[in-house]
Design a protein around this nucleic acid. Structure first.
Length: 308
DNA sequence: CGCTTTTGACCCGCGC
DNA sequence: GCGCGGGTCAAAAGCG
């Protein structure tokens, strides 16, 4: 069917061009003020702040930032909180066809794994161990090859809550679904996707809020080591690159999933997404900057904000 | 034919 | 130690 035609895309470009602002006090606890959602997210080890928390803390140390729409548009009133307690803020504010929004949070790289034993060795060893097999896609050691006692490592994750009728939001990357599981306390299954790029270890999880079926919770894990498949990179990438490098001052590993939207107000929601389709007709715009790498926050976070 | 999705089985971590 | 739930694997089916 015309799934592709209605597939919304995530994108910071869109977010920016749509009037997203940071630090506004736009009403925003739509998602995060929801205990239910908070609990869901907290299951992943994320930290959420409700408006109450925010109000209580902002005067003291403003532990987080808020991304909100406050431009009087249909999107006004929606927002997302970014919790910078971990080095980096989230990738982007996903946008959607629906007037909605999203929220994002991050978890600490250090907390990435249930127990983060010598992360130093795990991150480099895993790929090697896996390299003995034909495909190097697995960031993690396949359960079968994984040595006993060797814990699964998990990369930093970032989640969005987007109001959409479509589960799998277009974000410029190609994903292959590798699993689906029923989630406890939720009538909706959770889908697992992996980036189709053989060298990319990014994973994505998509599930619907059990409380509000119109809300899709998308979780990214890891960082893309390549560019999007078809979206032209915007000038915002320059910010992104700058930010990414800065954010990674302390963290050698970039891990923000990069999501982009076509410039021009997030059009193109009709672009095909499936892998069998030829890549977007338009060629990826050569970025003005070599972009040190990915990290999508740059696209969404205004320069002023970033220099907090 | 190649790639993606589906889906049951299996593995692993964690709490009790 | 056991059971539960989350996450991943991989064979089979589906699709363009």
């Amino acid at each position: 069917m015309g799934d592709d035609e209605t597939k919304p895309r995530l994108g910071t470009d869109f977010a920016c061009s749509s009037g997203w602002t940071l630090g506004s006090e736009a009403d925003s606890d739509y998602f995060f003020g929801n205990d239910r959602e908070s609990s869901i997210l907290s299951e992943f080890g994320w930290n959420l702040r409700s408006d109450t928390d925010r109000n209580r803390e902002k005067d003291s140390f403003s532990p987080f930032h808020q991304i909100g729409l406050d431009d009087g548009s249909d999107l006004a009133g929606t927002s997302a909180f970014l919790l910078p307690q971990t080095p980096p803020p989230p990738p982007l504010a996903p946008s959607n066809l629906n007037p909605t929004v999203s929220a994002g949070l991050v978890d600490k790289p250090g907390d990435a794994s249930p127990s983060n034993p010598s992360v130093s060795s795990s991150s480099s060893d895993e790929p090697q161990e896996k390299s003995t097999t034909s495909d190097a896609k697995q960031p993690e050691i396949p359960s079968k090859n994984r040595k006993k006692g060797q814990k699964r490592t998990r990369q930093p994750r970032f989640a969005f809550m987007t109001k959409s009728e479509i589960d799998h939001l277009e974000d410029g990357y190609r994903w292959r679904k590798y699993g689906q599981k029923a989630v406890k306390n939720s009538p909706f299954p959770r889908s697992y996707y992996r980036c189709t790029n053989s060298k990319c270890t990014v994973k994505k999880r998509v599930e619907r809020s059990s409380e509000d079926p119109t809300i899709v919770i998308t979780t990214y894990e890891g960082q893309h080591c390549h560019h999007t498949v078809g979206f032209p990179r915007s000038s915002a990438m320059a910010h992104e690159a700058a930010l990414a490098s800065r954010l990674n001052d302390s963290a050698p590993q970039l891990y923000y999933p990069r999501v982009q939207l076509p410039l021009g107000g997030g059009i193109d929601v009709t672009q095909p997404h499936r892998g069998t389709q030829p890549q977007m007709p338009r060629e990826p715009t050569p970025h003005p900057q070599p972009s040190t790498d990915e990290g999508l926050l740059g696209d969404i976070v205004p320069a002023g904000m970033r220099s907090r």
